[in-house]
Design a protein around this nucleic acid. Structure first.
Lengths: 69, 69
DNA sequence: AAGTATTGTAACATATATATTGCACCATTC
DNA sequence: GAATGGTGCAATATATATGTTACAATACTT
């Protein structure tokens, strides 16, 4: 589950820790989301967006991959 | 957690059951999301988007409410 | 190179998203 | 008015997102 959280976070000059605190979540969670190892909740995605001043599609959209089979 | 899933679903002429099957999820889950009682996963949000031909912001974006305190 | 800040990651615990089943409530239609 | 299709909503079970703690690895100074 790739995303652009890391890029957006750095653009607003925040560390994982700082972003986590602003959102009220653990640094652990931010780290795993950035690494694409977590499938975050919509609410958390929105909170990240609010903090880094982006919209959902800018950070979390991924095109549907073909050949689901 | 308001959203526009119901509107989008009806636009593509799908029933909750049909949407759920296409996505590979339960009708129960679709129902609760539409009623705003669930906080869906990003992956599920994306799957819904793919099926109703919308993007994340069109269906799931909500402005940050003020006065968090 | 040592020291500090930032990040990766593991183990286990908890909260919650989702599944499963089943039934009630409305429409519509026969 | 019985039958059918769509939906709301419980109760319980399971999977997984997130918390907690702790330590290792890398980057950044000085």
């Amino acid at each position: 589950m790739e995303n652009k959280v890391r890029i957006a976070r750095i653009q607003v000059n925040l560390t994982q820790q700082q972003l986590a605190e602003k959102i009220g979540v653990t640094r652990q969670t931010i780290s795993l989301i950035e690494k694409g190892k977590y499938n975050p909740t919509l609410k958390l995605c929105l909170d990240i967006c609010y903090t880094v001043n982006k919209r959902l599609d800018e950070i979390f959209w991924v095109e549907k991959e073909r050949d689901e089979k």
